[in-house]
Design a protein around this nucleic acid. Structure first.
Lengths: 188, 188
DNA sequence: TTGACCATGTAATTAGTTACATGATTAC
DNA sequence: GTAATCATGTAACTAATTACATGGTCAA
């Protein structure tokens, strides 16, 4: 049982879903390909944490719907009381920045712009996710409350990323002093 | 050649370092254990991207110092012109939040507090890193400029994380309306 | 004396990605 | 017709973690 397994288990307590559904639902919060998810679901079914049934569809391919078992819920509740592990971020961008000094002069600006665009794309992505959450689920304690606050987290992080990009650009342009703290820091 | 390899290569263009040194230097920007770094360095030396020599120390164990070769620099420059891949973050916290509804009432506040403390610890960590960068290296184009802006990035992200935790806490306390945008978003 | 730091490595395992494989429907 | 979406799986590989293994110095 790795972390992803618990995430899938958690999503399945909300509603019965296919592996494909789960892949789409977990994407915003944990990147995983279908090739990792399908075997994991099989394994969990084998361990009797999940139960499955095939559902025929007329227009689309048949799908295998999974649901959590009593044993699965117990497992999930057990996980909920364990300490949360620290996040792991791996960003090639950081390593690029670290050795940008050895490349030609424009490369810093190039990757900075690339990253800023990526953050803007992220904002569009999260805004879209947010718009898909039904209004009546935006209450504390409602089923989608978790999704809502996580989307907001994603938006805030992307916003901060853009602010950082702007700050570095200003430094490169000589429009800001190097010791100047970043906007977000100075506000606190 | 994975991303980490290029990061190590990049650090080595700054100065000759041991595997142990590299492990410490890369930590803030890319988490990797010594057990991954040592074999990678061996492999890169085998590919003639690096050269090594043993240095005896009286008080501490002997160390193997690595330096980039001409071939290594070429490899690094080639990498610098390739498109930067998107960052990957895996955070158990997100999956917890997603299924916090099925646990007892206090669990949301518990993990929220846990995470806020982690962010505060992060700020101390990055402030410490920042204080170790010599003042005369805080210029655009200086050797440590990349480290400096990355540390600032880490500080900004942690700050945003704390703001998000506070926002969610207010929601739980009923002190903020659910549709209220987060502080950082509203400013833009 | 116990734990942290220095220093290097290998072995075993898990987690995650890429590629292989198939096939229907729908929208441009 | 060509790409995207739906839908499920396996095989091969790479990346990363955990565990095994050793051993000296220094500080609380």
């Amino acid at each position: 049982m790795n972390i992803l397994s618990y995430g899938l288990l958690g999503l399945l307590t909300r509603e019965e879903s296919s592996g494909y559904d789960l892949m789409l639902k977990i994407q915003p919060h944990w990147q995983a390909k279908h090739s990792q998810i399908y075997p994991l679901l099989s394994k969990m079914e084998n361990d009797e944490l999940l139960a499955s049934r095939w559902v025929q569809q007329s227009d689309k391919p048949d799908k295998k719907m999974y649901a959590v078992t009593e044993k699965g819920i117990e497992k999930l509740l057990g996980w909920m009381t364990t300490p949360v592990t620290a996040p792991v971020t791996r960003d090639e961008f950081n390593l690029r920045i670290l050795c940008v000094g050895i490349a030609e002069d424009g490369s810093m600006r190039r990757i900075l712009n690339e990253r800023k665009n990526w953050f803007m794309e992220r904002i569009r992505y999260f805004e879209d996710l947010k718009s898909r959450i039904p209004q009546d689920h935006l209450r504390v304690g409602s089923r989608e409350f978790g999704s809502y606050i996580l989307v907001q987290k994603g938006l805030m992080n992307a916003q901060t990323g853009i602010e950082w990009c702007n700050w570095v650009t200003q430094l490169l342009d000589g429009q800001a002093a190097i010791q100047d703290p970043c906007p977000s820091i100075s506000e606190k």
